[in-house]
Design a protein around this nucleic acid. Structure first.
Length: 200
DNA sequence: GACACGATGGGCT
DNA sequence: GCCCATCGTGTCT
């Protein structure tokens, strides 16, 4: 399971988001290894994207301006964590939110962390994904090229369920785009309107 | 220091 | 579809 190199993430956020779908996310801890195929991601295009945390630079969002290929994990709604991968070159803000994976390895460990046994409920949604992978703010800043979280080079995107969407383009900023892959393992929440376009 | 609210998920109707 | 839990973060005073 070779890792994606930093160069992969040092690209425009929209490109990274689209090409990330189908790759496998890994997390190895003393508890064991878990992995899952990325089936739903969302692009947040930094300073130009009003939906992005980096639309305004704050202490929390400054990590999005830093080196690509590191984890940006934040806490929301007083309950949940969301994980992102920083994109663009160092100094340019951008990140891809990991919204859902198809669980592949370590389902037992995920089930323990999640407190549910139904595999369909293990990793659908950014909060569930973080819980299943044991990700919290302590993992903020983890380097995907050296840490215990990484993305594999192998990719699997075949199948009729692979789709992408373009929504909410603001003419004044020409942002944002958001990429999803539909299918049985996606979160089913906040599905954007608009045409489905094959990607991959 | 105070306050409003969110890139959510779960439970209930 | 509605409501709620729960608290860090950003913004305003």
């Amino acid at each position: 399971m070779e890792r994606l190199p930093r160069d992969f993430f040092a690209c425009p956020t929209l490109e990274v988001a689209e090409s990330l779908v189908g790759h496998t996310l890994y997390r190895s801890t003393a508890e064991g290894l878990v992995s899952g195929r990325l089936v739903e991601v969302e692009a947040y295009c930094g300073a130009a994207d009003p939906n992005s945390h980096a639309f305004r630079r704050t202490p929390r969002s400054s990590i999005m301006y830093g080196p690509p290929g590191v984890l940006y994990v934040y806490f929301t709604y007083g309950i949940h964590h969301c994980s992102n991968i920083v994109t663009e070159s160092d100094g340019v803000a951008g990140a891809v939110l990991l919204r859902a994976v198809e669980p592949l390895e370590g389902l037992d460990l995920m089930a323990v962390r999640r407190g549910v046994s139904d595999p369909r409920l293990l990793t659908k949604g950014p909060g569930r994904l973080c819980q299943a992978f044991g990700l919290s703010r302590t993992d903020n800043g983890t380097d995907l090229t050296a840490g215990d979280v990484w993305v594999g080079t192998e990719r699997r995107v075949e199948g009729a369920v692979h789709r992408s969407y373009r929504i909410g383009v603001d003419a004044s900023t020409d942002q944002p785009w958001r990429f999803y892959e539909a299918g049985p393992w996606t979160s089913g929440r906040k599905t954007p309107p608009g045409p489905a376009v094959p990607i991959g």
